[in-house]
C-alpha cells in the first residue's frame, strides 16, 4: 500500500479500512517514521486473535534494545488476524512497513469512529515537528 492511501494516528499507527462481509476491517501497522525512530527492533508483542479492544487501548508493544513503545488501537473492535510472520522476522517492519509489515486486523465495532485519524500530509507535518 502507498502511504497516501492510509490514515494515521498521532501515536504513529497507520490504518487501512476494507469492507468485508458487510463489516469494516481495519488493517493496522506502524509508520516508517516510527520504525526509523525506534532504531534496531528486537521484539514485538502482539495480541491474541479474538481479543476485544477499546479505542486507544494498548494492544501490544514493540521494543528496540533500549526503548519500549506501546501500540494503540486506533478504534474499538475485535482482533481477527495477527501477522505472525512479522514476529519472526522484524526486518519486514523496516523493509515494507506499509505492506508486509502490517501488525493486526481489527473488525471494527459498528460505532467505531475513525474521524480523529490524520491523512498522510497532516501526519508528515506532525513527524516533521517531532524531529525538531
Amino acid at each position: 500500500m502507498k502511504p497516501d492511501e492510509l490514515q494515521f494516528a498521532t501515536t504513529h499507527e497507520w490504518v487501512h479500512v476494507d469492507e468485508v462481509d458487510g463489516g469494516r476491517v481495519a488493517t493496522v501497522g506502524i509508520s516508517a517514521f516510527a520504525v526509523e525512530a525506534l532504531t534496531d527492533l528486537v521484539f514485538i508483542d502482539l495480541p491474541e486473535v479474538g481479543r476485544n479492544l477499546d479505542a486507544g487501548e494498548a494492544f501490544g508493544e514493540i521494543e528496540s534494545v533500549k526503548a519500549v513503545s506501546d501500540l494503540y488501537a486506533p478504534a474499538a473492535g475485535e482482533v481477527v488476524e495477527v501477522n505472525s510472520a512479522v514476529v519472526d522476522d522484524l526486518d519486514q517492519l523496516k523493509s515494507d512497513p506499509f505492506g508486509g509489515g502490517w501488525l493486526v486486523k481489527i473488525r471494527l465495532a459498528d460505532d467505531a469512529d475513525l474521524g480523529h485519524l490524520l491523512d498522510y500530509a497532516a501526519y508528515q507535518k506532525q513527524c516533521a515537528e517531532e524531529s525538531h
Binding site: V42, E63, S64, V65, V68
Partner: peptide, 12 residues
C-alpha cells in the same frame, strides 16, 4: 533484555 528493567520501562 534490558527493556524489562526499570531504567527503561519505569513503572511498567
Amino acid at each position: 533484555l534490558q527493556t524489562r528493567e526499570q531504567h527503561i520501562r519505569r513503572q511498567k
